[in-house]
């Protein structure tokens, strides 16, 4: 998988928001890579910049107040940030689609399901589609997401569907155009746990079958554990650690990842940890050096001044923390 050319590559992305009292330096050099057919997870607390990253990748970041200060987003080697709106719309909605957290807000309440499908499919086919073809494709898409009686469902309005069905319709819509990359922003969070499990299993099977790459953005560690191949942990606008999922869960290295994993209540018991003390920093004056150093229990002098680079501890397991820098490694040996 590593040998393949990456599908999406976010390089040193920096995004600021201009607001009252100064500039919020939200993204501080985000690096993220997705290979074809790969399932990637992006986890972090509320306000860590997950959604900003993905909005920038899809070019739906509100500008102003948002400003892309640096970095590039390469989709098949072409920089999305430098594309004209026309070129962009050739990629977005055709090769790259998105699922949102709240399916009710993603569907327009005054249109029935078929009418929701129409613009999506038309856009993907560059408007060369008859009504019959649209209907046929929509039926197929609903069958993909295991919805019974698609003919009848196409005439239904969002309000007539249950929460789980709505999210399935959204997934069907996002995958109807057979995109190469699907960005799913908290796809199960608004649903009940038994329905979330069903929706995630469905999504998982479907992207496997269609060989779609997926970026799963979530704050729930449990959701990514069972779904994705590789996991990025984000804190305050930085990727602090990336590793194959199981490896990251069994051996988290960054103190933030450790705190996060620790804080999840376990079904096997063992009490609840205190979590991570402090809170996400004020983005207008982020701490110098490592942004986590104000909350870190292993803080060293260098952390206060210098931003840690990514250290590759093992193949595919990178961590942005001086604890794993060459000097420390030697000291430990």
């Amino acid at each position: 998988m590593v040998n393949k050319a990456p599908l999406l590559e976010i390089k040193n992305l920096r995004v600021h928001y201009k607001v009252y009292g100064g500039v919020l330096k939200v993204l501080d050099g985000v690096n993220l890579t997705v290979y074809p057919g790969e399932k990637v997870g992006l986890v972090g607390e509320t306000g860590c910049g997950k959604t900003t990253t993905m909005k920038t990748a899809l070019a739906i970041l509100p500008v102003p107040p948002g400003v892309v200060v640096g970095g590039e987003i390469l989709y098949k080697g072409r920089n999305l940030l430098a594309m004209s709106p026309r070129q962009l719309s050739n990629v977005r909605g055709r090769e790259m689609t998105m699922i949102f957290q709240d399916p009710m807000a993603a569907l327009n309440p005054v249109f029935n399901v078929e009418q929701q499908f129409t613009p999506v499919l038309k856009h993907a086919a560059k408007n060369h589609l008859s009504n019959k073809e649209i209907h046929a494709q929509a039926v197929l898409a609903l069958q993909d997401v295991a919805l019974a009686d698609p003919e009848r469902l196409l005439q239904a309005y969002p309000i007539q569907l249950s929460g789980g069905m709505r999210q399935r319709v959204c997934i069907g819509m996002a995958l109807a155009t057979r995109p190469q990359l699907l960005i799913a922003d908290e796809p199960g969070t608004a649903l009940d746990v038994t329905i979330q499990a069903q929706v995630l299993r469905l999504l998982n099977n479907l992207v496997d079958r269609l060989n779609t790459s997926i970026i799963l953005i979530t704050h729930s560690l449990g959701v990514v554990y069972e779904t994705v191949d590789r996991l990025y942990v984000m804190y305050a606008g930085n990727i602090v650690e990336v590793a194959p999922t199981r490896k990251l869960f069994s051996n988290p290295l960054h103190p933030y990842s450790q705190g996060l994993m620790d804080a999840v209540p376990k079904l096997s018991g063992g009490g609840i940890s205190q979590g991570i003390s402090g809170r996400i920093p004020d983005y207008s004056h982020p701490p110098a050096g490592c942004r986590f150093h104000t909350r870190c229990s292993h803080v060293m002098e260098i952390c206060r001044h210098q931003k840690p680079p990514e250290f590759e501890v093992e193949e595919g397991h990178k961590v942005a923390c001086y604890l794993y820098g060459p000097k420390n490694q030697e000291a430990a040996v």
Partner: peptide, 18 residues
């Protein structure tokens, strides 16, 4: 049982409990 099997978990120990 259905509820327990739906819970997203984060370790092998927990998977056994589902």
């Amino acid at each position: 049982q259905m509820l327990l099997s739906s819970i997203p978990v984060v370790s092998k120990d927990e998977e056994k409990l589902k």
